[in-house]
Design a binder for these strands. Structure first.
Lengths: 170, 170
DNA sequence: AGTTTATGTCAGCCTTGTTGACTTTCCAAG
DNA sequence: CTTGGAAAGTCAACAAGGCTGACATAAACT
């Protein structure tokens, strides 16, 4: 496997070795394998309720900012309204999510988790946090800071702003 | 949004603040948003060839260790053979991947990228590396080390061993 | 000779994404 | 007060890419 061409250049004798194509490739594979682990535990739980990852994402972000409109959620999740609607309809029918007509603008629907919605959310997020907590603990606070820093750079700028908005909200 | 119950405990007055549920939630959302960015550029390219992410993954890992058997690839990708086969068949028909009968064990098929396979791989990986390189550069080497460390902890152990095996191979 | 292994393939199902077309509701500007 | 357009919901159709189950073949192993 040759192909050492691209971003190599020993620009100056110093420590830019972390920018070699090989290092980047490792980062890419790490993202791939880690994301699988990241979703594995919630996926197992969701299966028992015959829900999918899409339901988890909706539940997460409704819990995250209750009262959000559908349009807002659409923006965050980056899917079409038809796609979200299918998921949302199931969650509403099953009594996990409540959709309230807006007071100022009555076209808008504001989304909230019901009691049982909160329960499922807790089950899912506790499973996911469990793994994250173990990873964080093993890696230590400096590693975690780096982790978050790199992830933030990988995001699309719009998503970065979503992410940052969330931060402030908390 | 209360729910501060779970992993909190100010165990000792010191700096375990990075293990709070809130910090974990931020890490979780960072993973979600970052993964979207991570796949965005290759996805755009793949669309032009009417391929999907599954094709990208296959191409990546064939490039990564040429001559690998189908079974091996199955293990790494964590999908069923039927699922992989569909993707592999397309890539072989389109002349991007070559499948050679094993010499010792003639039941095995060993997979290689053809010339055009290499070309697409290069286009895809350069796009993906571009974003990663920018992220790495902005975050700096210490952050990158932490990033990789945390990701490795998030993986399932089997995947971690896959990942480490790859490291040594390079 | 019989069993196991590696691979491929057919058929069918599910989730979750997409587009496009259309309706209903309802705010707000003319 | 009417009308334009935004927000939301719905229907239909489709595609990618997961899955299971059943079965076929060739080769290797015992």
């Amino acid at each position: 496997m040759p192909d050492r061409g691209a971003g190599q250049k020993p620009t100056s004798g110093e420590g830019l070795l972390f920018l070699t194509d090989d290092q980047l490739r490792r980062g890419i594979e790490a993202m791939f394998f880690a994301y699988r682990g990241f979703t594995a535990d919630p996926d197992r739980i969701l299966q028992q309720y015959s829900y999918g990852r899409a339901h988890h994402r909706a539940i997460h972000f409704i819990k995250r900012s209750p009262g959000n409109t559908v349009n807002n959620l659409l923006d965050i999740l980056g899917v079409t309204k038809q796609s979200l609607n299918r998921v949302l309809r199931a969650l509403i029918e099953d009594g996990l999510v409540e959709s309230r007509v807006g007071k100022q603008d009555r076209r808008e629907r504001h989304l909230y988790l019901t009691e049982s919605g909160q329960e499922l959310e807790k089950e899912l997020s506790e499973a996911q946090r469990g793994r994250m907590r173990a990873a964080y603990r093993d890696a230590g606070p400096e590693a975690v800071a780096g982790f978050r820093q790199v992830l933030e750079q990988i995001m699309d700028p719009e998503m970065r702003s979503h992410f940052k908005t969330f931060k402030e909200n908390s």
